[in-house]
């Protein structure tokens, strides 16, 4: 598989007061296109930080993040925002939907950054909601939907602009088992059927089993735990 991401000698350090905290040091990894990786590890191991670096919402202290030949870490804020809108879909633990917007409007949000016409946007939103099985809930506001349904709306929002990669931060962390399985099956479908590259941070070993690979981040190093999906 062709490589989508190349991370080289990636280091991330935070300063808290006079104290300097190293999250990881000289991390090097490659993420092939079409991969589905579950990143696990203890709290504070830097899973979310790594996801943020991959998504271009945080910058490394040193090293490089390259996506399809683009040095993401070198892009200006404006270019980075544009890059994110075109290449990355984000799925958060707490869904982070806009409470004032309907499901369809939430899904349409990333398309406001494109030059698509209203009709084209509407068609794309319908397709995305159909993929996640919520075509009949397009007029509902987030508070009228269950947690699982809200997360599916969030997935539709993440895929509507057709990004190559989906970055999921504990996507099932706030859901019951049944809803979590539905979400994970949807992610698996997006990976297998639509070829989306998925990087998922999770604490949940059973969630990680849906991924093609499990990586354990510990003390700034990766330990690969599984090479093939179990389910």
């Amino acid at each position: 598989m062709a490589s989508l991401y190349e991370l080289k000698d990636l280091s991330k350090r935070y300063t808290r007061g006079k104290e300097s905290i190293t999250i990881f040091e000289e991390l090097t990894m490659s993420i092939p296109q079409g991969d589905f990786i579950a990143i696990m590890g203890p709290s504070g191991s830097g899973k979310t930080t790594l996801l943020n670096l991959l998504g271009g919402i945080d910058r490394p202290s040193s090293g490089s993040v390259e996506c399809e030949g683009v040095r993401v870490d070198k892009l200006s804020e404006g270019k980075l925002a544009k890059w994110r809108s075109q290449h990355v879909g984000f799925i958060f633990q707490f869904y982070n939907l806009m409470p004032t917007l309907t499901a369809a409007q939430n899904v349409e949000l990333p398309l406001l950054l494109t030059k698509l016409s209203g009709k084209q946007r509407k068609d794309r939103v319908a397709t995305a909601l159909d993929i996640v099985g919520l075509a009949d809930r397009k007029g509902h506001r987030p508070r009228q939907l269950s947690g699982g349904q809200q997360q599916r709306v969030a997935i539709a929002r993440a895929i509507v602009a057709d990004p190559k990669v989906l970055l999921c931060d504990e996507p099932t962390g706030d859901l019951d088992r049944a809803s979590a399985d539905e979400i994970l099956e949807t992610l698996q479908l997006l990976n297998k059927e639509l070829g989306k590259t998925i990087v998922m941070v999770t604490h949940d070993p059973s969630a990680a089993k849906y991924a093609a690979r499990e990586l354990h981040l510990d003390k700034g190093r990766f330990i690969e735990a599984k090479a093939e999906p179990a389910q």
Partner: peptide
């Protein structure tokens, strides 16, 4: 979240 989705700061 909007910034994450790619809405530029300006």
């Amino acid at each position: 979240v909007m910034k994450t989705l790619g809405f530029p700061a300006p």
